[in-house]
Amino acid sequence: MNPKTPSKLEKILASGQLAVTSECGPPRGSNGDAIAKKAEMIKDYVDAINITDNQTSVTRLCSLAAVIRLKLMGLEPILQMVTRDRNRIALQSDILGAASFEINNILCLSGDHQQFGDNPQAQNVFDIDSMQLIQTVRYMRDEGKFLGGDDLEKSPQMFVGAACNPFADPFEIRARRLAKKVAAGVEFIQTQCIYNLDKFELWMKQIRDMGLHEKVYILAGVTPFKSAGMAKYMKNRVPGMDVPDEVVKRMSGVDKDKQSEEGIKICIESIQRLKDIEGVRGFHIMAIEWEEKVPEIVEKSGLLPRPSVS
């Protein structure tokens, strides 16, 4: 696949090298330095950095402003954008705003329901869904038009991504659902955190059987556990998360002060195993409020040095 945009992430993936991305959550306040600080910690260990968009519906500094900060630092940001809070007018407008700062990557999401956040009484928008947002960006980029049909000046040059949860129900249509996103125009995928590797392999086989691995770059999502408590929480409380019993058992089996170390170890082992799966084109490391561990994970997983592309 030849790169179609100036995106560094796209170029690395197109070159056939494993890509590494990570993410930073913006602060709950107007301190922009917080985001810069997080990015500083990981910038030499990843190819691109996602900025989450009011994740779990908790109000934070906006992802658009945060990606611009990263861009001004000379980094490669991925703008996450959810359809929960903006209608098609605001979405298109924000896409253009981001493009004006040469933000070249976008991740199209529907977003968690507002019930989980700090404003459960809010209206939600959902004017369009995540698949339709993929279509929207592709349309603006490739046709140079607004959804309303008017021509736009200087189309946004964005490499279009989406999320995918191989573990959500119903499992039997998860691969078909990805096929729909591919049909909508998605170019890269960052998956939900993978703990059940057997099930992920099964899903990847379906993906290969449908030939989707040739049409979209799949970055396997991983998240290190900080503690056995976190593992249990993810298993029992987070919708669509699949944490096998043996993983929880392994975390619980070590002393409390060794648990975070064990979590990192599990994460690195997972990456090693995922590397061998045909169709996995890179990794998305989500170290939730634990960004300082990303360098260690990347290094010990043998993913250094990061490639440079022109």
């Binding site: 929960r84 529907s110 869904d129 995540s130 669509g240």
Partner: peptide, 25 residues
């Protein structure tokens, strides 16, 4: 709950909606 025209979202769990276990997806 998200009026998705191209669902289900990643929160669909054993036939239930992520916002409420009593709600079918």
């Amino acid at each position: 709950a998200k009026r998705l025209l191209n669902g289900p979202c990643g929160g669909s769990t054993q036939g239930h909606c992520e916002i409420n276990k009593d709600l079918p997806c």
